[in-house]
Design a protein around this nucleic acid. Structure first.
Length: 422
RNA sequence: GUGGGCGUAGUUCAGUUGGUAGAGCCCUGGAUUGUGAUUCCAGUUGUCGUGGGUUCGAGUCCCAUCGUCCACCCCA
């Protein structure tokens, strides 16, 4: 045998036995977002590298060491998208979707990051993203959170996730706070651990999120982001919280919640779970009012979030949220030359008459015994039986495989029977 | 990029102090004429991740490498 070729590290096949989780998530999201008036958009998987550098931020881990970047045959630097927001904004600008109008958009697809794989983290992973443009009030922030909360309810996961909320303030106040924090920490470098020293330059806000207990006191005494918020951001955040309170959405304000991508401002939120090990964030997003202009568009405010489908699927799987396994309704057993010839025709007739019928016709011959065995393994409700006897009588046998008597019916009567049963 | 665990049939795993491999499940066939899921019988499947080394002899010991899982980091 020739040498086998294996899939690339961190890039997984999604097998038939698990696909129903994906269908459940994708189907629920699609209809739910439709109910809120969101429209799907599809973008290319590959974009110019510059797009991600400008949006995500040059000094982020994603851009510095996690992107699949390569030169195409013209020498242009291209990158396989590590996230969806940048491409969505680019597409919206390029196609004039933001020209004095509002947009409620969503997309779904594969993203790529060169990371060390672990539970809930893969090199090719899949996200569903939702982005809204042209609305700057807290009402739309609330809408996004409400619709995500509804999604958890519809997936049966509402008890598994909790909402964390924070405000980063406007770009200006965030920058001011960043300076203040950097100054505070810079004077206490000797107390910082190795990771934090590195973050001091790249992303000082993340130091607040450090899990190192030795740094707890230092962090507790650091200047607070909430105290530096500008009035507008504060009002925006308060209004959002009031709406969530009125809607009965529980949340926890987490002053250490900082997004890893540079473009966020004001509202940020995360739905987290403790059921997934270290990768506890299942859905995260926030406001990014500055990004559209940063990418060359006319000023337009924006909010959005993304969720990781793999993480949701694992959570469903590990917690017995089955999803809809689609078993066949019937399996046609056909033995003998005449039956094999007519079986296909009978099966087609049944599919014509019953568009909802899931019917497998047995192919490949074999004894009654072996065909019945396959019928049973297929999890079908009924076995349809066609052999010489049935052909002679112009009828077909129907046997319920989960208990019940076998019957001999004309094809028309069988169709009627199946119609009542499925 | 860093650390730890693990790589043996399609799959889950066993393999004792080093003596060239086994079990369950799955799959296939059979247990009188055309009937499955239970039971019984029989059968197929492996360069023991890869490459070196030690040894008369390595699945078992050593080194390297790749993969995988989990964690750090990062993030959805």
């Amino acid at each position: 045998m020739a040498q086998q070729i294996k899939a690339i590290r961190g890039m997984n096949d999604i097998l038939p036995e698990n696909i129903h989780y994906w269908h459940r998530i994708e189907g629920t999201v699609r209809t739910l977002l439709g109910r809120y008036g969101y429209n799907e958009i599809r973008m290319p998987v590959i974009e110019k590298t510059e797009l991600f550098k400008r949006s995500i931020g040059e000094v982020t881990d994603i851009v510095e060491k996690e992107m699949y970047t390569f030169d195409d045959r013209n020498g242009d630097s291209l990158t396989m998208r590590p996230e969806g927001t940048a491409g969505c904004v680019r597409a919206a600008i390029q196609n004039g979707l933001l020209h004095n109008q509002t947009q409620r958009l969503w997309y779904q697809g594969a993203m790529f990051r060169y990371e060390r794989p672990q539970k809930g983290r893969y090199r090719q992973f899949h996200q569903i993203g939702v982005e809204v443009f042209g609305m700057d009030g807290p009402d739309i922030d609330a809408e996004l959170i409400l619709l995500s909360a509804r999604l958890w309810r519809e997936l049966g996961m509402e008890s598994m996730v909790t909402l964390q909320l924070n405000s980063l303030g406007s770009a200006d106040s965030r920058a001011a706070y960043r300076d203040k924090l950097t100054a505070y920490l810079g004077q206490r470098k000797e107390q910082l651990d190795e990771d934090s020293l590195r973050r001091l330059d790249s992303n000082p806000l993340r130091i607040l999120d450090s899990k190192n207990p030795d740094m707890a006191e230092l962090i507790a005494n650091a200047p607070k982001l909430t105290e530096e918020l500008d009035d507008e951001s504060k009002q925006h955040f308060d209004a959002l919280c009031r709406t969530l309170d009125a809607a009965g959405i529980k949340y926890e304000i987490n002053p250490c919640l900082v997004r890893g991508l540079d473009y966020y401002s004001k509202t940020v939120f995360e739905w987290v779970t403790d059921l997934l090990g270290a990768q506890g964030t299942v859905c995260a997003g926030g406001r990014y009012d500055g990004l559209v202009t940063q990418l060359g568009g006319k000023e337009s405010s924006a909010v959005g979030f993304a969720m990781g489908i793999e993480r949701l699927a694992v959570m469903m799987q590990e917690n017995g949220l089955g999803g809809d396994d689609h078993y066949p309704d019937a399996y046609l057993v056909q033995v003998g030359e005449r039956a094999m010839q007519q079986g296909m025709i009978v099966a087609e007739k049944m599919r014509d008459a019953l568009p909802g019928l899931r019917l497998i016709t047995h192919c490949g011959g074999g004894s009654f015994k072996s065909q019945f065995k396959k019928a049973d393994r297929s999890n079908a409700q009924f076995a349809l039986i066609l052999g010489d006897d049935e052909i002679d009588k112009g009828e077909i046998g129907i046997k319920p495989l989960r208990g019940g008597e076998q019957q001999l019916l004309t094809v028309d009567a069988a169709i009627e029977y199946l119609q009542q049963q499925i």
